[in-house]
Design a binder for these strands. Structure first.
Length: 472
RNA sequence: GGCGGCGUAGCCAAGCGGUAAGGCAGAGGUCUGCAAAACCUCCAUUCGGCGGUUCGAUUCCGCCCGCCGCCUCCA
């Protein structure tokens, strides 16, 4: 089954073929660490996480780069306002970003380059552009002349010819030949961070960062470049212009863009004032796995509504998956599971194989996570049904393997077995005794006590089953 | 004004030419000391509206309505 992605460059679903067989080089635009990253941002990062996970699931070795932009206008302004050195300011928000990313189960990328650590590379790239004659200088700043790049606009579809009515022009900028020309190197201004070098005192433009770091870590041409839709223009368009002007080679071959998370019909954004950080939701008692589930439950190219109601629904869905996981684990037994191990595919029941084929088919089709989840739930129902009918544990073991394999991509399964504390176990034993003696009043009272301590008891033919209600 | 996207059941959300996936919520049932879980059944003659193309359209085309994003830093 061929893997296809919707490519912003071609506006079609293109067959995916990496430059180097078996290996994918992926550049994902990361956060600018001037504030806490909100869940709208995380929608994109989770899309990228599922992307890398599915590429690996499909057998590719993945080299992912996610940049951390740790110097820009906003950072400089905010750090100064806070009276904190820029380095300390960004270090804190970088730490918080990694903390939230880990809570959401985002797999670490191979590289997290900081812009401030790649200034020499950026200067080198800027020099290459200058040598090519596609730049010009104004008051110590270096600008890229977009008129020099015939392919300008191929990503975003903007038409260079027409003047831009309604487009505002940054009054802060110095005179440019064309309003769309962009800065490569910003001349030093009093009180701002700056570097010295061949280009004179100043700091790199934002677009230059990504180009330089991508080329440095992935090569001049690589496979996939991703980001939010709001990056298509001008950021990604400019990256292409400067990168391809410098090298004369294609930059990224597949451009994938995630749609926004929407709250009350507006995109979630600081400027709108409707942002929610992961921490806000956790403080309201949300399960990070439910947040993860919710954010990958819609296709990445569709705008997605965020409501607390939808989050509660996601939580219920995650709970059902956890229940199936627990039931399979109990049914299979540790020993069988280990023997079923790796990918005992041949021994798997046809159910698993059919479901696996559908699962891959869904994700091969431009990473259709909602469809993949529908497959998982179809499997869930069928497995429960067969378990109700009393299947042999060997089959349960293969199903358990199947479910866990899928979770390598989805990452929504609770993996901690939720060990039952001693005190709870004692209460459970006591309750079982009461039930044996048909003392149901006592039994119900004990259930209530156990529940107050955060555990739910469910009676099954094989004995009581306990669920950790506050589990993460 | 230019470029792009969205409008599918109470809610979230797939499908995009062959007669509406999945989840949540809801109703009935099986099971159960009770409860829960699980399972079974039901829950959009209909996909913002109006036309058109077609044997057939939620899916293609046109127009209209509502909404959003980018064009300035932005996931």
């Amino acid at each position: 089954m061929p893997l296809r992605f919707h490519n912003t460059l071609t506006r079609r679903k293109d067959l995916f073929e990496p430059l180097e067989p078996g290996r994918v080089r992926l550049y994902t635009c990361g956060p600018t660490v001037h504030d806490r990253v909100h869940i709208g941002n995380f929608r994109t990062f989770l899309f990228e996480d599922v992307l890398r996970r599915y590429l690996r699931y499909s057998g590719y070795e993945v080299t992912q780069v996610m940049n951390i932009t740790d110097v820009d206008d906003k950072i400089i302004r905010k750090a100064r306002a806070a009276g904190v050195p820029i380095g300390a300011f960004t270090a804190e928000f970088t730490r918080l970003f990694f903390e939230d990313a880990a809570a959401l189960g985002i797999e670490p990328a191979e590289h997290y380059p900081r812009a401030t650590e790649y200034v020499p590379e950026m200067v080198r790239l800027a020099m290459r552009l200058r040598d090519r004659g596609v730049t010009y200088e104004r008051d110590g700043s270096l600008y890229f002349r977009i008129a020099s790049f015939p392919g300008y606009g191929k990503l975003s579809g903007i038409d260079l010819g027409g003047a831009r009515d309604g487009a505002r022009v940054d009054s802060d900028e110095y005179e440019k030949e064309d309003p769309k020309d962009f800065v490569i190197w910003k001349a030093h201004r009093e009180g701002e961070a700056w570097w010295d070098g061949e280009l004179g005192p100043g700091r790199p433009g934002w677009h230059l960062e990504c180009s330089a770091m991508a080329m440095e870590l992935l090569g001049e041409s690589f496979d996939i470049h991703t980001g939010g839709v709001d990056n298509v223009f001008p950021h990604h368009e400019n990256e292409i212009a400067q990168s391809e002007s410098a090298t004369g080679r294609p930059f990224a071959r597949y451009w994938l863009h995630a749609q926004h998370l929407v709250v009350g019909d507006r995109k979630m954004a600081k400027s709108v004032g409707n942002v929610l950080a992961l921490r806000d939701l956790l403080e309201q008692g949300a399960d990070p796995l439910a947040v993860r589930y919710l954010l990958i439950a819609a296709h990445y190219r569709s705008p997605m509504q965020f409501t607390t109601d939808a989050l509660a629904q996601a939580s219920a869905a995650v709970g059902r998956l956890a229940d199936l996981h627990g039931r399979l684990r109990a049914a299979a037994g540790a020993e069988e599971v280990e023997r079923a191990g790796e990918a005992d595919v041949a021994a798997e029941a046809g159910l698993s194989q059919r479901a696996e084929a559908s699962f891959r088919e869904a994700l091969d089709d431009d990473l259709n996570t909602p469809r993949a989840l529908a497959v998982v739930f179809g499997f869930l129902r069928e497995v429960h049904s067969r378990l109700d009918a009393g299947v042999p544990t060997a089959a349960a073991a293969t199903w358990l393997v199947r479910l866990r394999e899928w979770d390598r991509v989805l990452g929504v399964l609770r993996c901690s077995p939720a060990e039952v504390p001693q005190g709870i176990a004692a209460l459970l034993r006591e309750r079982e005794e009461a039930r044996a003696q048909r003392d149901y009043a006592r039994s119900d009272e004990l259930r209530k006590t156990i529940q107050e301590r955060g555990y739910a008891v469910e009676d099954t033919p094989e004995g009581p089953r306990v669920k950790n209600l506050g589990a993460t």
